[in-house]
Design a protein around this nucleic acid. Structure first.
Lengths: 372, 372
DNA sequence: GCGCTGTTCTTGATCGATCCAGAACCAAAC
DNA sequence: GTTTGGTTCTGGATCGATCAAGAACAGCGC
């Protein structure tokens, strides 16, 4: 037991150099730059290292010296368990992981940014840059990252001047969705929204909340919906809105029930995410409303579950996994980010906004409006 | 543009101390130990920091000095996308994340350990300890971690003398599953196994592969199955075995088809994971074999999908999320792991094996054996 | 023999913080 | 007036590596 209590100081590169009678640079080279020393000496060093139980340079010391951390950080708004439950988020993570594997980098996850007031977890973490996903304006964690001056790429939101952002054209996507419905003859629509503010509110739409929204994506999608509604000559204010604090099936169901119990009942519902849309599907089932005969539903995202739902979901597809991949690649390759020795020319400027394409995918949850 | 190219050296604690005319220790204390200096001076320091754009101590430098990294590493056998697809793995991650949030630690994911020959990704990462999940014997990445002497907790496998392991009693669980089936009168069983060696083999059982297995869990579950079979007075060697390279539905289906096309057809199939079992369910559907009337199926794990499958799955429940949580807690609290200042007494010895309980959950995929 | 190029290895500075021991100062206690 | 005690602040050593510059020595051509 003694060997643990005594906290025998771990052997260092310096020690090893000492016992070998060579300089520490040589030992360092043996591990990190094998071409810089003769094969025989290198073999001797490695042998001595094995004998001494030295497993290679301390990563932290190396980081300090080189300035590279070998990992990127992912800042998530909610807890990791929640993120894993959410297909859109986990697709995003897959995309980021794809890029990390290409570059052989670790992925450091820092969840719960929306809740955490304490910057501790963020500031104490060693990464080469951060990806911040779907955060409200003024998230303290994000402020700290920006203050620290580390490279950051934001995915979806918030758009911050001078900070690179990867996202989709939410306005166009939403407009496409709503345009599809009005094109099918629907005149009584309803909207199920993801949150406008990160305060846990779930309930009927509230103009004050909408106008003070701290979530860009929800705002832009709403504008897209309304643009199509207005284009069709309908009154934007007549479209009922239900806001859900979280994008999950249960709240979508709750929203669906609220909207479907109104009179006149909407003939079509726009949901800002597929999970919400699937919840609305459940609400329709609960209330005996036939989809798509009596009610059309359009989601957003095109998560895997959108094809397997009953009926399958018409939705706005966004390339979720690609979004993660693109964000990571941009983070790693953009000028502010890449190692100083890399050529700085011919790279996109900082603060870029990368917009990935969206596409309306028509499945079985939408059909012509029922006769009035 | 110039400000980026020029790579203006980032301001340090030292610089700040210089401009303020105080010592760096004082500045350090202002950030990390506010009680060590007068409120006025601290205010001055913080103000100057804000003015200078200094966002707090460099985490890497702090790590080097303090020896704490503020994150734990998770070594996964496959890619992260695969892990996220696998409900058992993602439950485990949830559990680990629970513990990380309690302790406000980051979670650094290092995937693809089975494939990676190059230790680079592992050795370059700064963490306070590793959780290694379900790795075959002699995974190079694991060897490196052990060589480095970092605290490690293994989840499930491999069991290594002197290394703490968190798992379940696979033998007992498997025996329970098989005992349930023979208790129902089944005499012709089949087994769908998770891999015995990490070489991508999928196909009929092979005694040589089984006896040279590098996956402890599969081995112990097989032994558990066979123990129950032997207890019932049946010939162990008569039970057909199909090995799947990966624990996913598609391979389970393939295995199911193989087993169900044999004559005599098995009346019950034991699968080493729920995903495999769900694949067997699909195979039965493909071949028009009624479950449970003509075929009983027992899974392992009790993933969320086990209740929603048609029919719902009888399975051996293991507390997946708790397993992750327990592993992380053990890593953080066990003697080898905790910061040197903590009291070392009254803690479990190193190399402990924590075994979490399993439980047979009987649902609708099992029933009495059909009349011969 | 002289300079030249190239390989192999070493020295000393550096990355940016924390920590330890102690200095300076002031107030209370004897 | 000296001691004691308690804040508050400082200087230098230290964590464990990498890096830039240069020394030592070899081989090669002329």
């Amino acid at each position: 037991m003694e060997h643990r209590t005594r906290a025998r100081r771990r052997i260092t590169l310096q020690d090893l150099a000492g016992t070998l009678g060579v300089s520490k640079t040589t030992v360092s080279n043996a591990f990190s730059r094998p071409d810089q020393l003769s094969p025989e000496l290198r073999a001797r060093v490695m042998e001595a290292a094995r004998a001494a139980g030295y497993a290679g340079p301390n990563p932290v010391a190396r980081m300090l010296r080189t300035g590279r951390a070998g990992a990127i950080g992912l800042i998530l708004p909610e807890s990791l368990p929640f993120a894993l439950d959410d297909p859109a988020t986990s697709e995003l993570i897959r995309g980021i992981a794809d890029a990390c594997e290409e570059r052989r980098l670790g992925l450091l996850i820092v969840p719960g940014a929306t809740r955490a007031r304490d910057p501790h977890t963020i500031t104490d973490v060693a990464v080469d840059g951060f990806i911040a996903y779907s955060l409200p304006w003024e998230t303290p964690a994000l402020q700290h990252v920006l203050a620290r001056g580390e490279p950051v790429v934001v995915v979806d939101e918030p758009r911050i001047p001078g900070v690179a952002t990867v996202g989709v054209d939410d306005f166009a996507g939403a407009r496409l969705a709503a345009g599809h419905l009005v094109g099918l003859g629907h005149r009584r629509l309803g909207i199920v929204a993801s949150p406008f503010r990160p305060d846990g509110y779930t309930g009927r739409g509230d103009a004050a909340r909408v106008s003070s929204s701290t979530f860009d994506v929800a705002t832009r999608r709403l504008q897209g919906y309304r643009a199509a509604v207005a284009d069709a000559g309908l009154a934007v204010d007549d479209v009922p809105l239900y806001e859900c604090a979280l994008s999950d099936e249960e709240l979508g169901r709750q929203a669906g029930r609220d909207l479907l119990e109104r009179t006149p009942r909407p003939t079509a519902i726009l949901a800002m995410s597929d999970r919400l849309a699937i919840g609305v599907l459940a609400a329709a089932r609960d209330l005996g409303v036939a989809v798509p005969a009596e009610l059309s539903i359009v989601g957003f995202d095109d998560i895997p579950g959108a094809t397997t739902s009953r009926p399958s979901l018409t939705t706005v597809r966004q390339p979720l996994r690609l979004k993660g991949y693109a964000a990571a690649r941009y983070l790693l390759d953009a000028p502010g980010t890449r190692p100083p020795d890399a050529a700085p020319e011919a790279l996109p400027p900082d603060g870029d906004e990368i917009s990935l394409p969206v596409e309306l995918v028509i499945r079985r949850s939408t059909a012509g409006a029922p006769p009035a």
